[in-house]
């Protein structure tokens, strides 16, 4: 396959493809598998060309998420570095035992004598017409589980770097990609910082700290850029990872601004935004003057875009939440 030059913008899905390609080339112990991942080149094209390039290190499995994730676990315990693709995050739910009871406990219970250096790649979020079983944003469920690492990249660069970091990690990592952002383009440097748990400060500002990740980042950028034209300079932080998450960067920013808005596409109730807000509140106490959470309203997500638009975060709801914390209408 031709590889892009650093100057060439590539799509988010191509960045994932490139990360898988580079990881397979760099380390013989890396294998890539999942439903339609091998010969069909991946349902979204993430593994395009990889079967041809790497043979049976890239292969198709039955539609059996539990056995797929358990197979990743067992093969990682025995020295491989598997990357398993789960087509939609919603399908993780049929394999919860393997993820939560099996994968997450491996290192702790054996005191590190057994480990699970494996990656579960999946994608999530609502797109117009997707039904309630193909629309959920589920990262908070897994951030709740000790032993798992969780990433939610939002740009082509982060999609590349997060995946390389995840594959190198000696811990099990779940990467939640954004289907809606798959066509979005950006420049990817292959030597960019791939450290786990480091946030990206997207915009600097002193009025309000806005924390986001995944699919919501472009909405936040639009809201923050528009408010900047009105004279409100917001600091926008993309966490990239929610387990572990960059408390240091968020706390330092919130200490400066005294105002915090957390935005995610996942349902707001008991979402990871609640964890971010409470961590900041516990640490800053009265220094935190105002905070808001923006997330999907507590409802299953309907297929019709007319209905789903009523529930999902938007530039408008994000803008209003930011202005609320400033006390402006």
């Amino acid at each position: 396959m031709s590889t892009p030059t650093d100057a060439e913008a590539i799509t988010y899905i191509r960045a994932i493809n490139l990360a898988l390609d580079d990881a397979l080339a760099a380390d013989d112990s890396v294998i890539v598998f999942g439903e339609d991942v091998g010969i069909p080149n991946g349902p979204f094209g993430a593994s395009k060309g990889l079967r041809a390039a790497y043979g049976d290190r890239v292969f198709d499995t039955p539609i059996s998420e539990s056995a797929m994730i358990g197979a990743a676990l067992g093969s990682s315990m025995a020295g491989l570095r598997p990357v398993v693709e789960v087509m939609y995050a919603d399908f993780l739910l049929v394999a919860m035992d393997q993820i939560v009871n099996q994968v997450a406990n491996t290192r702790y219970v054996s005191r590190g004598r057994l480990t699970a250096p494996m990656v579960i790649r999946t994608q999530q979020g609502s797109t117009p017409g997707s039904c309630a079983q193909h629309s959920q944003s589920l990262e908070a469920l897994f951030a709740h589980i000790p032993g798992l690492r969780v990433a939610v990249p939002s740009t082509p660069q982060d999609a590349y770097s997060v995946l390389r970091g995840a594959i190198s990690s000696d811990d099990p990592v779940m990467v939640f990609e954004s289907r809606r952002l798959y066509p979005s383009k950006g420049h990817v440097r292959r030597d960019a910082d791939a450290r786990i748990g480091v946030a990206d400060v997207v915009r600097q500002g002193s009025a309000v700290t806005v924390v986001t990740w995944g699919t919501s980042r472009p909405l936040c950028e639009e809201a923050v850029d528009s408010l900047a034209l009105q004279g409100y300079e917001c600091e926008l932080i993309d966490l990239r990872w929610i387990s572990p998450w960059d408390t240091e960067t968020v706390l330092a920013s919130a200490a400066r601004t005294g105002r915090l808005v957390v935005v995610h596409e996942a349902v707001r109730n008991a979402g990871f935004g609640a964890e971010v807000v409470s961590t900041v509140a516990e640490s800053l106490g009265g220094q935190l003057q105002a905070c808001r959470r923006v997330g999907t309203l507590a409802s299953p997500i309907p297929s019709s875009p007319v209905l789903s638009a009523q529930l999902l975060p938007s530039v408008d709801t994000i803008t209003r939440a930011i202005l609320d914390t400033i006390g402006e209408k």
Partner: peptide, 11 residues
């Protein structure tokens, strides 16, 4: 069972 499948894949 799934873990055993994976161990066998690696071996």
């Amino acid at each position: 069972l799934p873990m055993t499948l994976g161990l066998a894949m690696a071996h």
